[in-house]
Computed example of a mutant assay.
Amino acid sequence: MPLPFLTADRAFDATDDVALPFDDHDQWRRPYRPGPWRVGAAALALLLASFVLFAAVIITAAGAVSGAAVTFGLAVLVILSALRMLRVGTWVSRHGVRRVGFFSTSTVAWARVAHARTVQQPVRWLGLPRTVQGQALILVQRGGEQITLLTDHNADFLSRIEAFDRAADTVEAWNAEYGVAVPAAATR
Rank of each mutant, 00 (worst) to 15 (best):
D16E: 14
P21I: 00
P21V: 00
P21C: 05
F22Q: 12
F22P: 00
D23E: 15
H25G: 02
D26N: 15
D26Y: 15
D26R: 15
Q27L: 12
Y32V: 06
P34Y: 05
W37R: 04
R38P: 08
G40F: 03
G40M: 01
A41I: 12
A42D: 02
A42L: 05
A43T: 08
A45G: 09
A45R: 09
L47R: 06
L47D: 04
L48W: 03
L48F: 07
L48C: 10
A49V: 05
S50E: 06
S50C: 10
F51H: 12
L53D: 06
A55S: 10
A55Q: 10
A55P: 00
A55W: 06
V57D: 11
V57K: 11
T60Q: 12
T60M: 11
A61P: 00
G63K: 05
G67W: 09
A69S: 13
A69Q: 15
T71M: 13
T71D: 05
T71G: 05
T71R: 08
G73P: 06
G73Y: 02
L74H: 06
L77C: 12
V78F: 03
I79F: 12
L80E: 08
L80F: 13
S81V: 10
A82Y: 11
A82H: 12
L83M: 13
R84F: 07
M85K: 12
M85N: 15
L86F: 11
R87W: 06
G89Q: 01
T90S: 05
T90P: 02
V92E: 04
V92S: 04
V92P: 02
S93T: 04
S93Y: 03
R94H: 11
R94C: 01
G96N: 03
V97Q: 00
R98V: 00
R98E: 10
R99C: 06
R99M: 10
R99T: 02
G101M: 05
G101Y: 03
F102N: 01
T105S: 13
T105V: 13
T107C: 08
V108A: 14
